[in-house]
Design a protein around this nucleic acid. Structure first.
Lengths: 375, 375
DNA sequence: TCCCATTGTGAATCTTTTA
DNA sequence: GTAAAAGATTCACAATGGG
């Protein structure tokens, strides 16, 4: 395909020094790159969502779904063929020591992973991006889809010398090894690109914190980072800020223009400031179900209020049964007192040798464990 | 294959009442099960160690990547064929409303997921088991592999009525819906099965807390839970404790014997601790006409939305009149809001001393009466 | 200016029963 | 089988607006 068009010559020195935006078809553009020229690939390919109907929130507002044409494929086979083609083309552009990241959801990531293995890539990790603020499951028919998966792979099992900044990452993580589950918010607020009408420019813009972690983990300053599905240019913006060179491929001119403007506005960090970002503190929320599954209180045991007047039975699922009513420790506590609300952790007690003890003390046990494990 | 051997007739009543251990080949034993007889499948299939051995041979580490891929394809193909065969056999044993869980790591889970999709299974979630205490990465060349992945799938996209105990799970989780990332410790200490020499009986024994969450999420008391790779019998032990029936298939007699002894020692929880939680979806239907005929609201009374802006009149036949339009509480609620749909039970309110009260509370009165009458 | 209530929104494979 | 009706359902933030 010959529709691959270079972006107009960059005006800012940043462009010449650090980046190149290619407007055109991903596979054709990849094939035009010099072989073995790239240090790191980050790819956020279409997820091939298969949405059936309009989805409404409980307040009857409509969810703005990702129903763009670029995400539609005729069949799994068509998606697989596309995936195989771009992965092969990307592989050609990778240096022998280069690694590749692909992000996806359960709709597509299994197919990507299988094809990676079939093509001889060597998976180093699958990394889970846990979202602090995912969209809820509005119909209550599944678990909240609160994460996406990234696969990190080398060109092959024999690939030596790939970049992994072990010491720097550990230092930025309170001297603990970085785990395969990462916690970041989704991209919202100031960071989210909007058009003049206030609408989001790209439906699936990724947070810069996520890309920062990827680039800091698996690349060095001066490395060439390639993103074949550039979209709103998060990879380019982060690469520029962190002193990496970048190549972005995007076929949609609107997205490409927005990405270019965005990256032009980025100021590279001063040398020396490019260090691993500390990981976000996790809120150690502990559910009563966890107290039960860990055996700190047995299913079937009775909880009581401080005066021992009100009783309820602990159920295996971490709810309480009060007569025929079943609900959370908070809701049953409120019902039993005929109150609007109740903090079940302080209201309910277990019997011990030394009298009644609030279940909050059981939660404290788990919290201490979690703090110790650095989870 | 005819090596499938039933376990000796169970001595303990537990066996007859709740469980069945089949010693033999997984696929053959699955094919012997009655079709459409199982409510839930939990599978912890092997990682295909043969594959890993082949890939680590030194001669492979120097060959060209393309030849490398070909060689890998043969090994992966064997694993894929095995996976396809047991998934098809398990599918046959599943009721139309049954769901299936498969756990794995990046070595095999992508292939499992792809084959699930190719066979027409419908993925409901991928669920990440985050380990509080994973094994560290000793060589510091990768992220600590701190999670495993479970895929939860229905038989197909049209599968209706699968079990998901949404309200109970939410009640045990601080009244927040459960997310797709779960945090549990790995199986250690007392819970870990050891032989006389103190060595672990099974290399990959799963924690009971993990299985508890799975069974509490996606099965009901009395359901049949099938585990085609029974191993040390965690699924059976948890199923018995939670009042589920179980079928385990295991070809290794040492594992099977350990599992049997382990399950025999399990004491089921008291009924009240595991009984199905009453859920709104399964509550008996009550028509608004019944609320009217029982006198809980008078014909001619006015209903209002929560803000008191919209008004409609109750008719003796249980319909509402909104201006000149007459219809069900749902229909009129939708019309009055100019919405596609509306739950009239929560939309409409009656005036009381304490302000507006949703008519859902009137329905609750009738439902309590029905429950009391044993209806 | 601050506080609080209200509104908006995010990669979503999101219902069940009766006629 | 299809079509219509009944009925169940959201969390974390950010932006906005009124007092």
């Amino acid at each position: 395909m010959s529709q691959v068009v270079r972006a107009p010559a960059p005006s800012a020195s940043i462009q010449n020094a650090s980046g190149q935006l290619i407007i055109g078809d991903c596979i054709a553009a990849l094939s035009d790159l010099p072989p073995a020229s790239v240090d790191l690939v980050f790819a956020d390919p279409p997820y091939n969502l298969q949405l059936q109907n309009e989805l409404q929130r409980p307040d009857l507002s409509v969810v703005d779904a990702v129903d763009d044409a670029w995400d539609q494929f005729e069949s799994f086979e068509a998606y697989d063929n596309f995936t195989r083609a771009w992965l092969l083309a990307a592989r050609r552009a990778m240096k022998p020591s280069a690694t590749l990241w692909v992000i996806g959801s359960y709709h597509n990531i299994f197919r990507v992973g299988t094809i990676l293995q079939d093509l001889g890539f060597w998976i180093l990790n699958d990394v889970v991006w846990r979202k602090t603020n995912p969209m809820p499951n509005f119909r209550g028919r599944r678990f909240t889809n609160a994460h996406e998966t990234m696969i990190w792979a080398a060109r092959g099992p024999d690939a030596k010398g790939y970049t992994f900044n072990y010491e720097a990452l550990k230092g930025g993580n309170e001297d603990l090894q970085l785990r395969s589950d990462w916690l970041f918010p989704i991209c919202t607020g100031e960071e989210r690109l909007k058009d003049e009408d206030g609408r989001k420019v790209h439906p699936t813009q990724k947070p810069e914190a996520l890309l920062s972690r990827v680039l800091l983990s698996a690349s060095k300053p001066g490395d060439v980072v390639l993103d074949p599905f550039f979209g709103s240019g998060t990879t380019g913006a982060v690469a520029k800020r962190l002193g990496r060179r970048w190549i972005g491929i995007e076929r949609d001119r609107t997205y490409a223009a927005a990405a270019q403007a965005r990256i032009d506005a980025v100021e590279p960090l001063p040398e020396g400031a490019i260090a691993a970002a500390p990981s976000k503190r996790e809120a150690p929320r502990v559910a009563f179900a966890e107290v039960v599954t860990r055996g700190l209180v047995q299913p079937g045991a009775m909880l009581r209020d401080a005066k021992g007047r009100i009783e309820a039975m602990v159920r295996a699922d971490g709810t309480l049964a009060w007569g025929s009513v079943v609900g959370s420790i908070h809701r049953i506590g409120a019902l039993a007192q005929d109150a609007q609300a109740c903090n079940g952790w302080t209201f309910w007690h277990v019997k011990t040798d030394k009298g009644l003890k609030p279940i909050d003390e059981l939660r404290a046990v788990i919290r201490r464990e979690l703090a110790h494990a650095g989870a």
